[in-house]
């Protein structure tokens, strides 16, 4: 087992969070949120990876060969579905913000402060 994929996941997570903290554009922020979520894909697939393992379908493979973990792949797939729902919803908010108020800057949208 190598730590490299976990470092990659942590790096992607850090990039996404950095973007969320510094960006002043809603579309950029939504993309940064996608980046944050992408780190979870890498993390999930890394935990289930087996060196030299094959894709986990066995029906036409003789014996019981080494295979990568199918559970994390199912989890990553569910994760993609979750992301699609969240991203679509957030994008619709951003469209509304642009249509009604002509701005995508979260600071201009902030009505409630304090």
């Amino acid at each position: 087992m190598t730590y490299f994929p976990y470092l990659v996941a942590a790096w992607i997570l850090a990039c996404g969070l950095y973007g969320l903290v510094t960006n002043r554009d809603l579309i950029h922020q939504i993309i940064c949120l996608i980046v944050v979520q992408s780190s979870t894909y890498v993390m999930l697939l890394a935990t289930g990876y087996v060196t030299g393992g094959i894709a986990p379908y066995f029906s036409d493979v003789p014996g019981s060969p080494k295979a990568v973990d199918p559970v994390v792949q199912a989890l990553a797939l569910t994760d993609v579905v979750v992301e699609a729902a969240v991203t679509a919803l957030l994008a619709s908010f951003a469209i509304q913000a642009h249509k009604r108020f002509g701005t995508l800057d979260p600071q201009d949208l902030a009505e409630f402060k304090g």
Partner: peptide, 24 residues
């Protein structure tokens, strides 16, 4: 719009951190 965006982004980041923990 502001409330929903703040709500959605903070909670989603939290949820993805949870998922990272679950993977670990």
């Amino acid at each position: 719009i502001q409330g929903a965006l703040n709500f959605a982004i903070t909670n989603s980041v939290g949820a993805y951190l949870s998922l990272t923990g679950i993977a670990l």
